[in-house]
Every structure is written in structure tokens, then in C-alpha cells.
Design a protein around this nucleic acid. Sequence first.
DNA 1: TACATTTGCAATAAATTTTATTACAGTATG
DNA 2: CATACTGTAATAAAATTTATTGCAAATGTA
Lengths: 135, 135
Amino acid sequence: MISGKFAITLHILTLLSKFPDDYLSSDFIAGSMNVHPVLVRKEIANLKKNHIVESKEGKNGGTRLLKSASKITLDAIFKMTFDTVTLGFSKNEPNPDCPVGKQINKNLEHLYDDINQTISLQLNEITLEDFSNKF
Amino acid sequence: MISGKFAITLHILTLLSKFPDDYLSSDFIAGSMNVHPVLVRKEIANLKKNHIVESKEGKNGGTRLLKSASKITLDAIFKMTFDTVTLGFSKNEPNPDCPVGKQINKNLEHLYDDINQTISLQLNEITLEDFSNKF
DNA sequence: TACATTTGCAATAAATTTTATTACAGTATG
DNA sequence: CATACTGTAATAAAATTTATTGCAAATGTA
């Protein structure tokens, strides 16, 4: 199921890209998106794990980009949020005695894999800089 | 947010395509997917609205395809389930005083529109028959 | 050094969304 | 006319996402 992780992460990064030299606090970022600062810090933790941003603790602390916005693709962000586009699965174990039930999830998975690959190709052509320039 | 509508609908249609001459009951279909019959009937109601299937009430009733599986594309099914692929929006009204907050949803929407168009093109090439033949 | 500000993180609560269940009226079949 | 279905609405339960609270640790500044 798709949560707001991608959107939140992209919002964070867009803000950071607008102030590449400043450390922005999670409170400031959360204020722009009207979301809880703890949620912002959670996504930032994920960005740090991926070496996209760095943060500084303590007074006047915050977070800033580690990489140039022109070097970060939306596909990379997509992959970092661990979101995978699916159109849903049979979540209850389907009936293994039914030829369709037995294989439905495997076949859906193949279909969604193909879709994800296409999306990745598309998102790979768009950099954070491109996106940020729309603002 | 993406629910299981597409997957459920595709499962229903795959089953129907396997028995094109029979009326399958919602109980039978629900049994294959291990899901509640009422949920199946809800999705079937949607399929009927779109003239993809017809049902017969009463004893020995059920549902069957109205169109050949080779004439139904996965894109049509995708569109019928009203699912749109998104990677999430800022669901709380973002801060209108922030240049990023003010425009983020509009820009995400454009991005997702593009993605959906690509997915549609891809799903348009696959028929229910193609999908069904994998089983 | 003491204080204010900020991150980091875990635990819990609230809200939202999805799915299941219940109930019952209506319809065809044998 | 009894049985086996669909159709639909209302409610409940489950799952997921988002918000909140609480506090430790770090850091700049007076």
C-alpha cells in the first residue's frame, strides 16, 4: 500500500534544494507541509541512510543536501522510499485448489514488475533540480 | 490510496473468462480469492455499470462476461476501478505561504498524470485474454 | 557553565481507509 | 413454494498511516 513517503520525501528535498547552504530544521520543513515534525525526521533518517542529506544536531541544527539536486533523480527518491507501485494483491491467501487463485499473485507481481520498470525509466529522466525548478 | 479493487476485479474477470458460458456465483468467486462475497458483488456491480458483465438473479444465478476476453484491455479494467496510481500527496493542506507548499500538490499531480499515462499505454497492450492465458 | 534549541528514537494514540459481517428484500428455478 | 442466488445498505472489525508525547543526547551562545 502506498503511503505518503514519496511525496513527503520529495517535498523535503525540494525545500532543501531551495536553500542548499542552510540547515533547515524539521520544524520548519514540517510547517511547509503541515505534517508532524517527527514524520519529517523519520523520512530524513531514511535520506541520511542513503547519503542524500546530512543533519546537524543541537542549536541551529537541521538538515541539508549532500548531493547536488541535479545529481538526484526522482527514480532514486522513489527507490529510497521503498514504495513500489502496485495495483493491489489478493491479500488473503487465495484458494490454492483453484488454478486462478493459486497463481494470481505471481501473475500480478509480474505485471506490476513491468509497470514499475516503466515508471523507473520515466522517473529516471527527471532530476530533483528539474522538479524544483517548477516552483 | 490504492485498494485491492483492481486486483479483485482482475481476479473476477479472469475466473469469468475461464468459464465464458457459465454464470458464476459470487460465493464461488469469493471462494477462489478468499474474500467476502459482498465485496465481490460490489466489484461486479461496477463491472455491470461498465457493461463488461451481466448477472442473473435467483437460483442458479451468477455473473458472466458480456464481452470477449480478447476485447477487454487491462487498461479498461484499470480505469473502471477508478484507481489512479499516485505516489501520494500532501494530504494536509500544505502551507500556502511557502512557495513550495503552495504548489507541491499541483506539481505532484502533473508528475502522476504523466506516470498514469505511461501505465495506461502499457496496460492497453494487454488483454484479459493475454492475462488469463498465463493460468 | 547553564540554557535554549534541535536531532534521534521509541512508544503510544488517534485517524483514516479498507475489508468483513450482518441483515434483509427481491428474483428466478425446479 | 422452498431454495439459492443477487443487490444494497448499514455497521463492525482490522489494518495502515499519521500524529503525539516523552525524553536522551548534542551543540551553539550568553
